[in-house]
Design a protein around this nucleic acid. Structure first.
Length: 468
DNA sequence: AGCACA
């Protein structure tokens, strides 16, 4: 209760923290009200576009004295309060607080609910949505679904500010025509805020995407649109998933060794076992991971890519029917990284956990705020994607070489230290360096032999460098 | 130009 109840001119209105403003310009924005009022105090709430003409508004100050100061100022000012050059009349409201009648969709949050009007669900891909909304900041997650309202998407940003900027810019606008199929005539976005703060994306699919979690499988067919049969986790026509991948190696101009495969596939998780064999005149390999999820990530990331630059040793991956390979522990065609031969383990680095996975969760603090498309180029170790195809993997899928941190690399080191055979040497014959272009800044696997010393032994503790 | 609506 303030005693400074100076009755205003003409009317004896009870002062209120809430001011009533009228004669506002058409569709006066909250920002304009704030601009006008904030010199007098802290604004805690507003209500715009009130009245039949939508030209009135309410502004609530944090403190009664702030409202009083504003009314007093303009009561005696020679310059009237103005918005866009229009005189605004200000009085105390007859209420003492603004009731928040904002619908939930108007309550800012970091997740937007986007209704895409005038389209079928298949007309707008997640990539298109991602592209459009990424202009405003890092899009963490997208979930799309069809409701009575039409095709909708939940889009998760880092914070409400980013979401707000996207909403302000895109609400009522249309997705650019060139991003849409020809038959789409109009495509307006209706954007409100979702009450969600963190979407729970179960898998990467043509319907949903989590750009922060590289351990959800990416479905490249969804990336390419509708050309290929959809194989989503929801409507899978795919072969059953497995923790074991079957790799067919096409155009195998150079030896693909157990070690090369181990290096390539270890980027996605612990490789337990590898077996290489010939079938139908071609070379195939089985790669065993501890779990299906890891295998799925590796499969989706590596499918169609080449181990070596120039289209050599192109990988085609499918799920094996096997779940646990029975392979010789050490041979030039197989490897079992799970064996724990004490004589070998003795040479291991003490304290090396059985399955360290620190590198497996880089998406937290390390996630870039604004992932560039080019990021993919440095994100994965494999060859470039097929011509004309947008890199399909998650921008955050920053694969790291398993420099000593991947358990699978330990056996090979200890193996070498224990003076066992020259499997590296045998597998990567010296001189087989078709791609020996030292200066070339390729991100691909180095040619075979680049990772081994002339003598054939790998540099101890230093796995092949294949870019990062 | 004179008081909203969940």
């Amino acid at each position: 209760m303030s005693t400074s109840s100076q009755p205003q001119f003409r009317y004896t209105q009870t002062p209120s923290k809430v001011l009533h403003l009228r004669n506002l310009p058409w569709e006066c924005a909250e920002e304009e009200l704030v601009e006008l009022c904030k010199p007098f105090g802290k604004i805690v709430n507003t209500k715009c576009n009130v009245g039949a003409n939508r030209n009135q508004a309410f502004v609530e100050f944090a403190d009664l004295n702030q409202a009083i100061s504003m009314v007093s100022y303009y009561a005696s000012s020679s310059e009237p309060a103005q918005v866009r050059g229009k005189t605004v009349y200000i009085q105390y409201s007859n209420r003492h607080e603004i009731v928040n009648n904002k619908s939930p969709g108007d309550t800012p949050g970091n997740v937007l609910l986007v209704t895409i009007e005038g389209v079928e669900a298949n007309d707008v891909t997640i990539e298109t949505i991602h592209l459009v909304f990424s202009a405003f900041g890092f899009v963490h997650k997208i979930a799309t679904f069809e409701k009575a309202a039409g095709f909708q998407a939940l889009i998760q940003f880092t914070d409400a500010e980013t979401a707000s900027s996207a909403r302000n810019a895109l609400d009522g606008r249309s997705i650019p025509r060139y991003l849409l199929p020809d038959h789409v005539t109009s495509c307006h976005l209706r954007i409100s805020y979702s009450a969600h703060t963190d979407l729970n994306i179960k898998f990467q699919s043509h319907r949903s995407r989590d750009y922060t979690n590289p351990y959800l499988p990416v479905n490249p067919t969804a990336m390419e649109g509708l050309m290929q049969p959809v194989v989503g986790p929801d409507g899978k026509k795919q072969e059953p998933q497995s923790n074991v991948l079957l790799a067919s190696i096409e155009n195998m101009q150079y030896a693909v060794t157990v070690d090369v495969l181990h290096t390539v596939f270890s980027a996605f998780g612990t490789v337990q076992k590898i077996a290489i064999f010939e079938k139908n005149g071609g070379t195939q390999a089985l790669i065993q991971y501890p779990d299906v999820t890891t295998a799925a990530v590796a499969k989706e990331a590596l499918e169609g890519h080449c181990i070596y630059d120039g289209g050599y040793c192109k990988l085609h991956l499918s799920y094996s029917r096997h779940t646990d390979l029975n392979v010789k522990a050490y041979s030039d065609k197989s490897r079992d990284y799970t064996i724990s031969d004490p004589s070998l383990l003795a040479t291991q680095v003490p304290g090396m956990p059985a399955a360290p996975s620190v590198w497996q969760n880089p998406q937290g603090a390390g996630a870039p705020l604004y992932p560039a498309t080019d990021y993919a180029a440095s994100a994965a170790l494999q060859a470039q994607p097929p011509a004309g195809q947008v890199p399909a993997w998650d921008p955050n899928l920053q694969v790291r070489p398993p420099y000593g941190s991947v358990p699978g690399s330990v056996p090979s080191q200890s193996y070498q230290a224990s003076s066992v055979p020259t499997y590296v040497n045998a597998a990567t014959p010296a001189g087989s360096s078709p791609l020996s272009q030292p200066g070339v800044s390729t991100m691909r696997m180095p040619h075979p032999g680049a990772s081994v010393r002339p003598g054939g032994a790998p540099v101890p503790g230093q796995p092949p460098y294949y870019g990062q």
